[in-house]
Amino acid sequence: MISVDRVSKSYGSGDTAVHALENVSLNIAKGEIFGVVGQSGAGKSTLIRTINSLERPDSGTVTVDGADISRLKGAALRSARHNIGMIFQHFNLLSSRTVQSNVELSLEITGMDRGARRKRVAEILELVGLEGKAAAYPAQLSGGQKQRVGIARALASKPSVLLSDEATSALDPETTRQILDLIRELSRELGLTVMLITHEMDVVKRICDSAAVMSQGRILEQGTVEGLLTTKKSLLGQALFQLGEIPKNGNTIIEITFNGVTADRPVIAQLARTHGIDVGILGAAIETIHGRQTGRTRLELPGQREIVTAAIEDLRNQGLFVEVIGC
């Protein structure tokens, strides 16, 4: 659905040039929720803005739903944008318009007539859970409600792609969760492809199917979230489950990544019982998201090398993803 092919973009020239994007490529399948994570200044924002051509790449191609958006102009670009909704960190709602009217703007732009607009707005406001708020002004709404208006506005013209530019970064954790769940729900319900950028790892854990990690204009790794979590030395894996620094005491230290199925098994107890190891738990970050347990546990396995090696082998044979991070 979205294909970014060797895109580069820099600002300024000469020694002071900032390379916001360097040879970035990625593919997002239809219906997928794709997260791009990275610190501020990593180029995430520039990247997402090339998807609807708010930013034009210096080189490379961005294709959305078959259209080469990086080269479209004028009316063709505007009509391609009707197919790509976007939501923003600071909502960007018109303060002079009511909720109804803010959402209607999107349809005024696509040229829908008044009667049809009214009908569609009522429909979409219900979908985002804002029934009864049509006459309110943005200033009268909470942050979460404002973002719901943003989502309604972005989706009113029935686009097939939704871009989210740090859409939950200005919201509190509880509201963030509600908005993310709404995006996920809408994506499933409408077959919407979602690309989001964020610096919050929680967002990736909660809704992303796939993710890319960006730093200094480059993509360091990308793939499905499950895949990345079970990849050795994955940056995403380390960032998602931060367990602090690794102690150096000569004992073997391992990290077990749980991914849905395996988490409910009594792994540690089994380790102690079967192999006779006095397992120490150094850290753990396990969460239940959408009914699946995901997380990492860092264990200290003291004892003879052969016993420990056999134990690790045994864990791997059970289908667990085990990384030895210190010994």
Binding site: R78, G85, H90, N92, L105, I109, R153, S157
Partner: peptide
Amino acid sequence: PIGLVEAAESLGA
């Protein structure tokens, strides 16, 4: 705010 202009641009205005 410039963001409002961008939002409208993103809608294809």
